[in-house]
Every structure is written in C-alpha cells, then in structure tokens.
C-alpha cells in the first residue's frame, strides 16, 4: 500500500512538472542593436516584478529583427528603420515607434577635427578625401568604418547624411553599434557613425553642418540624420508581447528610454 501511494505521488508530480514549466511565460526579442539597452532594462524590470516571465533580448540588426519576428522565432522584432512595404506585405507586421535616435558621425577623441559639412562627409565616405590632413586632422590615412547591410543605422546614415551616395569598398564593416564604438575608440585615424544613444566620452561626435548631434536636435528635426526606433509584431501583439510594448510606451518606459540616451516618442 505504501509502495503504490509512493508511485502515485511520483506519477502525479511527473504530471505536474510540465504544468509548472508551462506557467513561465516567455518572450523573445531580437533585431536592431540600438534598441538593446532599452529592451534589456525594461526586461529586467518586468522580470524582477514577476518571476513567472522570462524575456530574452538578442541583437542581429534590423534585417534579422524583421526576419525573426516574421518567421515567428521571436515575438518582437526590432528595427531602426520603418518597415518596407514588401516586409509588411510578406509577414503582416505591425510597427510601434517608441524612441527617436539620431545617427552621429564620430571620430577618435584625440582627433582635432570636430566639425564637418555634409559635402565633406560624403567625400570622406566615398573615399575621395582619404587623408586627415586635407581637413585639418592628424597626419595619416582616414580609416573608414561602416555597418553591415542589415543595419538600420547604416540605412539612415546612407539615405540622409550620404544622400544615397557612393560608399568606398575599403570601408571596414562592423556588426553592431557597440562594435562601432569600440572600433573608433581604438583607432586614432577612424571615422564612422553610430546612434547618438551610444555616444560617450570614448568617441567624439562630429558637429555636422554646424548642428550638434544631440537627441534634442534630432527630435526637433534640426539635426537631419535621425530615425525612429520601432518594435514590430506579427499581427496584433498579444499576451506578454503586448504587456512589454505597453510598458515601453508607458511613462515608466519613457523614463528608461531617456536613461538610455534616447528621446521617447509620445503615443
């Protein structure tokens, strides 16, 4: 009798276990690398408030964000650019803009150059100006850094700052905003571009056409090279995805967005 009841208990608990695990709600987020600080902070706050949820945040770039959310691999796919009509048609995605981020041209902090015109900028990234000396910088060749094809940051920089101009093939390509910052901080002859939210004292943001690249100037539109950051869902968000998006768009979420160096978009 003892034995049968022990077996019964074992069986019951075996049945109960999967029930327990399914109670943990999970949410997958992937895509734009500019989004990551905001996503991680919000995820940490939500997970601390409710131990029953698990949120994972991955990068990959805007292209990955679209693909992963479209294929149903994650529930929220982030992009640093608006979705193309093709993307919306193919996957039936819905976009939620939550922050404004400018894209700043940046150089090494020791570089004497702190201002450029957009013409100069175009010439530099096309490889036609290839020496820092010509524009009053250090003695040496300009070391160009850019982003991969999936990058929303690259998309915005290329369409607005470079006016869809030519990009030199010698541009070194890095896979994230963070990698861009590290690359520029380590290379005294570097020039590249990154989200203003990522700019800190390890790199120097360039004043473009006389306008300082700050989030305020980006929000007011004085600084032209800016974009919105989006969260995208396949169809209407539901469950935890909806909860997460609502949280990001709430006043509390806005506070996190500001802490991360971005300007929240009012709903």
């Amino acid at each position: 009798m003892m034995r049968t009841s022990a077996i019964a208990v074992a069986l019951l608990s075996a049945l109960a276990l999967p029930g327990c695990t399914s109670k943990v709600e999970t949410l997958g987020i992937a895509g734009g690398t500019a989004h990551i600080p905001v996503m991680e902070k919000a995820a940490a706050k939500l997970m601390a408030a409710d131990p029953g949820i698990r949120i994972t945040v991955e990068g990959g770039g805007s292209g990955v964000g679209v693909q992963k959310v479209g294929e149903g691999l994650v529930q929220i796919g982030n992009t640093g650019r608006p979705l193309s009509d093709q993307e919306v048609d193919k996957y039936g995605l819905k976009s939620f803009a939550f922050a404004i981020d400018g894209v700043a041209v940046a150089v090494h902090p020791d570089n004497a150059v702190s201002e450029l015109t957009s013409d100069q900028c175009r010439e530099i990234f096309a490889g036609r100006i290839s020496s820092w000396k010509v524009i009053g910088g250090p003695d040496g060749p300009i070391s160009l850094y850019g982003r991969d094809e999936a990058s929303g940051t690259r998309e915005v920089f290329w369409t607005t700052a470079l006016a869809k101009g030519e990009v030199a093939a010698s541009t070194k390509v890095v896979p994230s905003n963070g990698a861009m910052k590290t690359a520029i901080a380590g290379d005294p002859l570097a020039i590249g571009y990154l989200g203003i939210g990522h700019v800190d004292e390890s790199v120097k943001a360039i004043v473009l056409d006389g306008v300082e690249p700050t989030q305020e100037n980006a929000t007011s539109g004085v600084y032209k090279v800016n974009r919105q950051l989006f969260m995208n869902t396949k169809g209407e968000p539901a469950g935890l995805a909806k909860k997460f998006i609502d949280y990001i768009l709430s006043p509390e979420g806005a506070k996190i967005i500001e802490e991360c160096g971005y300007i929240p978009v009012s709903r």
Partner: peptide, 12 residues
Amino acid sequence: AMVLAVDSQSPA
C-alpha cells in the same frame, strides 16, 4: 555571417 542578417528576398 554578415549577409545572413539581411532581408531574405534580396540578391545579397
């Protein structure tokens, strides 16, 4: 590794 991330429709 770099291009894997772009839109799956493009020639890239």
